[in-house]
Amino acid sequence: MRDLLPEWVAVEVAGEADYTAALLPAEAAALSARAVANRRREFTAGRTCARRALSRLGVHGRPLVPAENRAPVWPDGTTGSITHTAGYCAAAVARRADVRAVGIDAERRTILPENVRSAICRPEELAWCARRPDEDWWAAVHFSAKEVVYKLWSPIMGTWLDFLEARLTIDVDRGEFEAEILPEKLAKEPGAPKLFRGRFHADPDLVRSAGVVLE
């Protein structure tokens, strides 16, 4: 994630020990006793990475409990994002004086089932993917980038943004994307940003995406 974000965003990627690190009491209390082992590992790694990133901003020992939408409640004056997928977890945080929102996401580079692709991609996006027949994992890039867009939208607007309410344009050569929020969504959300930008990178088995909103 480090190469996808400005240098003033603190980024931490989980190592194996982070998945079994000690949670702070408030974090442990927020984790359901019914949570399966994999959920516990992901939650633990995410909080551990996020607290380590916050410490680089001078914020130490603050628990990160989930809000109703399961996103972390960040300490005053900060904002951030956590992502986890099989075998990978990362956190990115920044000062609110520098940025309105930070979003990161990681997904396995895989071919998504048709019903999942149609829930993520608009018809024009599916057509774009279809024109890349030798690289049919591009729907996973749309998935990852749109997750970033939602993570940027949510702390600013406090409302839900559906995958199909954003139209994505991908610049393959530059590793960049733009997401245009549809006019009908903007009509219901006065003051909402109209356009989000970010960067992505596709490794052999992992897609990483990230973006920030400055103003």
Score class of each variant (00 low, 15 high):
181 I>F: 05
179 A>V: 05
141 V>W: 01
138 W>G: 00
78 T>R: 03
139 A>L: 08
122 R>M: 11
111 I>A: 14
66 P>L: 06
134 D>P: 00
115 N>G: 07
70 R>I: 10
66 P>I: 09
190 P>Q: 04
20 T>N: 08
24 L>Q: 10
125 E>C: 03
44 T>M: 11
212 V>H: 00
182 L>A: 13
199 R>N: 06
57 L>D: 04
197 R>A: 03
180 E>I: 15
100 R>G: 04
53 A>N: 07
178 E>H: 11
67 A>Y: 01
39 R>N: 11
127 A>Y: 10
177 F>R: 02
103 G>E: 05
170 I>K: 00
89 C>F: 04
92 A>D: 06
173 D>R: 14
159 T>L: 01
189 E>Q: 15
215 E>A: 13
181 I>D: 04
68 E>M: 11
92 A>W: 13
112 L>D: 10
142 H>F: 12
52 R>K: 09
37 A>T: 13
161 L>N: 00
166 A>P: 14
20 T>I: 15
122 R>G: 10
36 V>W: 10
42 E>Q: 05
82 I>R: 01
87 G>S: 09
98 D>G: 12
197 R>K: 11
146 K>R: 03
149 V>Y: 08
146 K>L: 12
150 Y>E: 04
189 E>M: 13
30 A>S: 09
120 I>S: 02
114 E>G: 13
118 S>L: 11
212 V>P: 00
77 G>N: 07
45 A>G: 09
109 R>E: 05
166 A>G: 07
110 T>S: 11
104 I>C: 06
173 D>W: 02
42 E>L: 11
29 A>M: 08
73 V>Q: 04
206 L>D: 05
202 A>P: 05
212 V>N: 00
152 L>R: 00
60 H>F: 10
55 S>L: 03
200 F>V: 04
204 P>S: 07
133 P>A: 11
197 R>N: 04
7 E>G: 12
121 C>T: 06
64 L>P: 09
107 E>M: 02
188 K>E: 15
69 N>Y: 12
17 A>P: 13
39 R>D: 09
210 A>T: 01
89 C>A: 14
157 M>R: 12
102 V>F: 01
107 E>N: 08
164 L>E: 10
134 D>A: 02
75 P>Y: 05
160 W>T: 06
185 K>T: 15
30 A>M: 01
119 A>H: 15
101 A>F: 00
46 G>C: 03
193 P>E: 02
117 R>L: 15
68 E>G: 12
206 L>C: 15
142 H>V: 07
123 P>S: 08
193 P>G: 05
